[in-house]
Design a protein around this nucleic acid. Structure first.
Ligand code: ZN
Length: 537
DNA sequence: CGGTTTTGACCAGCGC
DNA sequence: GCGCTGGTCAAAACCG
């Protein structure tokens, strides 16, 4: 519980954040499983009706869907994870039938009552008139019923349409990703998910720890774990890291030399050393120097420690680790605030997230809208308690951003730590249900400073491209990058510290991802998910 | 030569 | 007090 961020998200089939039972630090973060099914994204819709879907794939662990669905007035359950049609049918049946029955039943009862009192002519007349009235009423009811049906059908149609849309988008993205992966394959691709968390600093001084989870290219953590330390020196577990580490590893291995039984020199660090600034530099837009690596207890993957080298005295540090469960996920934790201006890339990230957050906060968009929106392929707002999660997937870089920093509730910006006004206030709120109807959210990246910020990013990194996601904990500068928004899709869910938050994140991410990326499922998703959870401050 | 990575060692905090 | 774990330090080596 070092960090106390442990989140368990069951709700989404797609994304399950599990804490590896005893997972060390990273536990706190969530894991995002790639198995995201596209369709699920639907869940996120803010519609009054909650649709809970169960995926078979989904974590068998828990299915709380029911619970969630119960809350809302109308619950639509999809029981077929895959089938599109199936879910619909179920919806129609449940809703309509019930409504109709009720109406009919009522009418019937009415009639019966009328009949009772008939004995005299007067009574007959009266009864007739009543009967007529009843009939009229019945007709009216029927009409109304019809109308309801129509509405229902419309809703279902919309739902289906959205679903289809999502599926299509996801497929496209997947295809693209796959292509990219194939192309990049050797290059360790950057296509991983990143989860970024900013912690509210509890631990230490002033610095605010931020955590990021990266699911990505096996970049940092994976690589780290596998290539350098694990394979060679530590001989830890050979993990499957092969995936990511591939390129560098091979090179590094050759290059690396053993000294005293240790390997020295540059091997491939997860980040990929010099050349491979994949994450560290590029991702964040900042320059980082690795000052340590350690094996985490519950995680076969080592954790890497980085220090910001952008400025001499910059206190910002970050930890990068891969999820034990899903190595594609990188968890990055940022701590502290930069004492220098951030690079454009970082700024861009921040700005994008900020913008997204603001939009979310405004609350204008509906999930559906978001999905439809060209810029945002998918947007989901998680209504978890107070926190919000927004997901935006744009073709190139779908990103999901969770802001914990912001409290939807308290719209006020939490205190800007030092420099920026990052709304971190996020106090831990619970995301009890992923599906919660409306949470305002802010994109976390803006978060910047002191508070911790935790985010989940699922991103594919495009190598050097800067855009990705970065949730950097840094200052937001005036931004520069309008286009970034397009390029970078940021969805942020604000998650407060609560475990529930994770669930919310997971849900949001899953939904978004599914929508945006297409099948985030296994292989590679290009989507980025960033969560910022800044609580403190 | 400067900057960075690697990695064992060291230190601090926490629980028992 | 001991052991465990996490975080940091610093020497050695590498790369451009
Ligand atoms: Zn810095």
């Amino acid at each position: 519980m070092d960090k106390g961020w442990g989140l368990a998200l069951d709700s989404d089939p797609h994304i399950s954040f599990n804490k590896p039972s005893s997972a060390p630090v990273l536990d706190s973060f969530f894991k995002i499983k790639k198995n995201l099914d596209v369709p699920d994204s639907v869940k996120m819709f803010p519609f009054p009706v909650t649709v809970s879907r169960r995926d078979d794939h989904a974590s068998p662990d828990k299915r709380n869907d029911d619970d969630e669905s119960k809350a809302t007035c109308v619950t639509v359950k999809k029981e077929n994870s895959y089938g599109e049609a199936a879910p619909r049918s179920s919806l129609h049946v449940n809703v309509r039938t019930t409504g109709l029955h009720l109406l009919t039943a009522n009418t019937g009862s009415d009639q019966s009552t009328v009949d009772d009192g008939v004995s005299s002519d007067v009574d007959d007349k009266r009864s007739k008139s009543e009967l007529a009235q009843l009939q009229v009423e019945l007709q009216r009811m029927n009409v109304e019923n019809q109308r309801l049906r129509d509405m229902l059908s419309q809703v279902t149609n919309n739902y289906n349409a959205l679903q289809m849309h999502l599926v299509a988008l996801m497929q496209q993205q997947q295809q693209q990703q796959q292509q990219q992966q194939q192309q990049n394959h050797g290059t360790e691709a950057n296509q991983e998910h990143e989860v970024v968390q900013v912690k509210p600093e509890e631990k230490k001084h002033e610095v605010v720890p931020r955590q990021f989870l990266d699911l990505g290219p096996s970049a940092e953590t994976d690589e780290m774990s596998h290539s350098s330390s694990d394979e060679r020196t530590r001989s830890a577990t050979p993990l499957a890291n092969m995936e990511t580490a591939s390129v560098k590893n091979s090179a590094n291995q050759e290059n690396s030399s053993f000294r005293d039984g240790k390997r020295i020199g540059r091997e491939e660090s997860p980040d990929s050393g010099s050349q491979g600034w994949n994450h560290s530099k590029i991702t964040d837009g900042c320059q980082w120097r690795k000052y340590g690596q350690k094996m985490a207890k519950g995680n076969p993957c080592p954790r890497a420690y980085y220090r910001c080298t952008m400025a001499v005295g910059c206190p910002v540090r970050k930890q990068v680790q891969r999820c034990a469960d899903d190595r594609t996920i990188l968890i990055t934790t940022y701590e502290g605030s930069h004492n220098h201006p951030l690079p454009p890339a970082a700024v861009a990230m921040a700005s994008t997230t900020t913008a997204a957050a603001s939009m979310l906060l405004s609350g204008s968009m509906s999930s559906a809208d978001g999905l439809m929106n060209p810029n945002l392929l998918a947007r989901a707002i998680l209504p978890c308690s107070s926190s919000m999660a927004t997901i935006s997937a744009s073709a190139p870089f779908p990103t999901v951003t969770l802001d914990l920093t912001h409290n939807p509730n308290s719209q006020q910006v939490l205190r800007p730590p030092t420099h920026l006004q990052v709304p971190f206030a996020g106090q831990p709120q619970n995301f009890a249900s992923v599906i919660a109807p409306q949470l305002p959210q802010v994109f976390g990246q803006a978060l910047y400073n002191q508070s911790k910020f935790s985010g989940l990013q699922l991103s594919q990194e495009m190598g050097s491209s800067q855009l990705h996601h970065q949730s950097q904990p840094q200052q937001l500068q005036p931004a520069q990058q309008p286009s970034l928004v397009d390029t970078v899709n940021a969805a942020t869910a604000a998650i407060t510290a609560d475990p529930n938050f994770t669930a919310a994140l997971a849900a949001a991410i899953s939904s978004i991802i599914s929508g945006a990326n297409g099948n985030a499922t296994t292989s590679n998703n290009n989507g980025n998910i960033t969560n910022n959870t800044s609580n403190r401050n």
